[in-house]
Design a protein around this nucleic acid. Sequence first.
DNA 1: GGCATACTTAACCTTAACGTCAAGGTCAAG
DNA 2: CTTGACCTTGACGTTAAGGTTAAGTATGCC
Lengths: 137, 137
Amino acid sequence: MPAATPSTKCFTISQLARELNISTRSIRYYEEKGLISPQRTRGNQRVYNRRDRARLKLILRGKRFGYNLNEIAEMIGLTDVNMGETEQIKKSLEYGEKKLSEIRDRITELEKLAQEMNTIKGKLQQRLKDIANGSVP
Amino acid sequence: MPAATPSTKCFTISQLARELNISTRSIRYYEEKGLISPQRTRGNQRVYNRRDRARLKLILRGKRFGYNLNEIAEMIGLTDVNMGETEQIKKSLEYGEKKLSEIRDRITELEKLAQEMNTIKGKLQQRLKDIANGSVP
DNA sequence: GGCATACTTAACCTTAACGTCAAGGTCAAG
DNA sequence: CTTGACCTTGACGTTAAGGTTAAGTATGCC
């Protein structure tokens, strides 16, 4: 067998913070809330692997859609925690299903919003033309 | 000419609050922040028309996507305020364009999120099967 | 070992977005 | 004109999500 763990790249907290463009404080705060649990060095410093990094990205994505940290916690509760009893898994699946349809709703809603803004855009452009001609306001 | 204003249905604040499932406090707060400016009765009570109602819906939609009220204020600044000088309109258009592409980005991102959750779902189901058989955890 | 960086926890501070409560005004029904 | 439901402003309270600062520890490099 060759050397071990070929896919265990690690990051420090500030590396991740820089990469994800957030503060270290935020990352620690997410940990406080139980959203991530990185390993530690002997010296007690946090070490993040790519799974942790992926999870952070997931958290940030959730945030961008207006979910708060509690909701996100529930949402990603279905990734690797729980993973114990069949019942838990089933519940997670159920929850995930709910969230998925919620997301689909959001997508259609966003499309509606885009449409709405397009309408407004059209009106503004029309108005611009009107002004260019001389139709009084 | 027949009777005037055929499309001027009005609402009280609590009617809207109930319909939109938010508190009256929130609605007043949005007004405080300059996001809506309903008419008043002689007795100084707020009266909302359907345009106001539509705007409230827009605000809530924005919120659901993680925009804060300041961002939303800017965003809807392009609906009927400004509407005065050509320069303003042009700026609004520019801003709207930016927002539109932002929205498109969000849509793709949401799709990615949905995909990700589907992957998780698959894993959970697989795990469920494994347990059903008897492969130890 | 010594130095510069980066990391740790703990404590306190800030801001947005409301919730809540008080003290009083409005409005439609009777 | 009274009553009850609803509305007004104002002020203060609360909560989530961090920012900030302090005092001390780890790590990498010379």
